[in-house]
Amino acid sequence: MANSSAETVNTIGNRLLFALSILLIIAGVSGFYLLEMYDWYIRSLVLVICVVVGIAVELASSSGRSFIIFVKDSYREVQKVIWPTRKEASQTTIVVFSFVLLMAIYLWISDKTIEWIIFSLILGWK
């Protein structure tokens, strides 16, 4: 069964915009390497311009507009998150570090006990 929530590029216009954006980005990267005779800042400017225009072209398509809507919705959801206070974050951090320290001590004791049993009692090594 097909995933109905998966977004596909379904119109010719969207496909052309997507292809154009990919071609612009490829042209920018290619131009950066093919324009060796120019200074690095001119080559970098060509790259940045092509990538920015490519992204702008893609954002003009329906999938780009959906992406913008998704980003705005995500930002709104992040604003709804109730972040812990400094005191809560500090207390949680202390609890986590304490647990890690206790587990480290427990594992060290277990390791040394097993080492003592194997090497001293079973193998007889001193």
Rank of each mutant, 00 (worst) to 15 (best):
Y75Q: 07
G64V: 02
L102A: 15
L35F: 11
I114S: 09
S62F: 03
K87T: 02
M1Q: 03
R65D: 03
K87H: 11
V51E: 04
C50H: 06
V51I: 15
Y38C: 00
Q91P: 00
R43C: 00
S66Q: 13
G64K: 04
I12E: 09
A27Q: 07
G64W: 06
Q79E: 13
L45V: 02
S61T: 00
F67T: 03
A56T: 06
I94E: 10
Y41T: 02
L35D: 05
R15D: 01
I26S: 07
S44F: 12
I118D: 09
E77K: 13
W108Y: 12
L23K: 00
V81K: 15
W116Y: 14
G28A: 05
T11S: 15
A27Y: 10
F119P: 00
E7A: 08
V9E: 06
G13M: 03
W83P: 00
I122S: 05
V29F: 14
I94V: 12
K112A: 15
T85C: 04
L45P: 01
L24F: 10
A2E: 09
G54M: 04
S30I: 00
V29H: 04
L17K: 13
S30Q: 11
R65S: 06
I26K: 03
L23H: 01
I49W: 03
G124V: 01
N10L: 07
V29C: 08
K80R: 15
A60K: 10
L59Y: 08
E7K: 15
E36H: 14
Q91C: 00
W83H: 14
T8K: 14
P84Y: 11
F97K: 09
L101T: 07
V57T: 12
N14L: 00
F32P: 00
I12L: 14
F119T: 04
A27E: 09
I118C: 05
G54P: 06
S110T: 07
S74P: 01
D73P: 02
G13Q: 10
T113F: 09
R86H: 08
I25R: 01
I12Y: 08
N10P: 00
I69L: 13
L23Q: 04
A60T: 06
I25Y: 04
V100A: 12
T93A: 13
V46D: 05
A104G: 08
V51N: 06
Y106C: 13
M37G: 00
L24S: 08
D111I: 03
K80P: 00
L23M: 10
R65G: 02
F18Q: 02
V46S: 05
E58S: 15
L121N: 09
L123V: 01
L45H: 01
A89C: 02
R76W: 07
V53M: 10
I25G: 09
F32R: 01
F97V: 11
E88S: 06
I26E: 08
I82S: 12
I105F: 11
L47N: 04
F67V: 02
S74A: 11
K72N: 13
V81N: 12
F97A: 11
F67K: 04
I25S: 07
V100T: 09
A19P: 02
E36Y: 13
R15I: 00
F70P: 01
I69E: 14
S30R: 11
R65C: 01
S120W: 14
